[in-house]
């Protein structure tokens, strides 16, 4: 036919072909992200002219060889990728890009959700974020409104301590539970345990974090614990969405965090938070972690103990609901 190029679809297990895409991206100074489910290449004369990849809902690693720019290859790639992902059930696609590509990607059916100085976050459905904001809460938030964003994997007395403290200092407290299901404990359980453990706090509103608070979409690095050059950008973006849209919508003026002794990424995230939130008149409040036997109570410590079957040790570290849950899944017996 008149086509002068061919297309190739590369799946995750095709290491050799993926390596070729990676080499190609390197020539145009883009780093290939190995966490992708599918890569589509446009090949001309046995050479890659353009490439695109996606991991679940996130589009990544877009590159067009300089000689082939302004030939509409991006349009082909995006069309193909959208159709392909559609067939796999990924209807909503998102991506991060540099400001200089915003217009061209917007012309491919994407809408800017939020941008920082360095990056733009875009999605291919106009109303998704608007609907998300609308569905965050029905309640009217007056007075001092604070927030905490937590994974609660599962909820411990350390978490509870922070929640209780924030609850007592404010009129309303939103606890956003990170809903990405890459944690050890599934989101539904984490939510139920949190609900049971905070029932006594009347001004606490639990909210499913959804896609726009530390999710693999808005903050891909967090879940991979990688510390690459983009981490600052991702942090800024995530926190700008929070400050500019979510906090504004819910009238939030404070965000509490626990001190983070272990995780480098979380630590960095908190540092960026302390810089960004004040720009939007949101107070950043860091609270020292509750200690037990000179050690911070953390979910990972609890999970480790559960793996070891040391339920006695756990009992003093977690609320009752969590304790019962851990026993039920680990086959231990109740201690009275």
């Amino acid at each position: 036919m008149f086509y002068e190029y061919t297309k190739e679809y590369i799946l995750k297990n095709d290491e050799i072909k993926r390596h070729k895409s990676a080499l190609f991206l390197k020539t145009i100074d883009i780093e290939f992200d190995t966490n992708v489910d599918v890569t589509i290449n446009i090949v001309k004369n046995n050479q890659i002219a353009a490439t695109i990849s996606a991991e679940k809902n996130l589009i990544k690693c877009i590159g067009v060889a300089p000689d082939f720019r302004s030939e509409g290859l991006m349009n082909i790639l995006f069309s193909d990728l959208i159709s392909y992902q559609y067939s796999k059930g990924f209807y909503n696609l998102a991506l991060f890009t540099k400001a200089e590509y915003e217009t061209i990607i917007a012309s491919l059916g994407f809408y800017t959700i939020c941008k920082t100085k360095n990056i733009v976050f875009m999605e291919n459905h106009k109303n998704k974020f608007r609907d998300y904001l609308q569905n965050l809460t029905q309640s009217d938030c007056k007075g001092k409104v604070a927030s905490i964003v937590m994974n609660l994997n599962p909820i411990t007395n350390g978490h509870l301590y922070l929640i209780e403290k924030a609850s007592s200092e404010n009129d309303v407290l939103f606890v956003f539970i990170v809903s990405e299901d890459r944690s050890v404990v599934p989101f539904d359980i984490r939510y139920q345990l949190a609900e049971a453990s905070t029932r006594h706090l009347k001004n606490v509103i639990l909210v499913k974090g959804g896609e726009y608070i530390i999710s693999s979409t808005t903050f891909p690095s967090y879940f991979k614990k990688d510390y690459n050059s983009w981490i600052r950008n991702y942090c800024e973006l995530d926190l700008t969405i929070f400050s500019k849209h979510i906090a504004k919508k819910l009238n939030i003026s404070k965000r509490y965090v626990g001190t983070e002794p272990y995780c480098k990424v979380t630590n960095y995230y908190n540092k960026v938070m302390s810089e960004i939130l004040p720009k939007y008149n949101i107070e950043y409040i860091e609270v020292s972690r509750l200690l037990s036997e000179d050690d911070a109570i953390s979910a990972s410590r609890v999970r480790k103990l559960a793996d070891e079957g040391d339920f006695k040790a756990i009992k003093s570290l977690v609320p009752e609901a969590t304790y019962k849950y851990l026993i039920s899944i680990n086959g231990g017996s109740y201690e009275t």
């Binding site: 509409g72 349009n75 082909i76 069309s79 159709s83 059916g109």
Partner: peptide
């Protein structure tokens, strides 16, 4: 169910 058709290449519509 939801469905999609077409492309975003020149003279086309998705």
């Amino acid at each position: 169910k939801r469905a999609i058709a077409g492309t975003m290449t020149s003279s086309d519509v998705m």
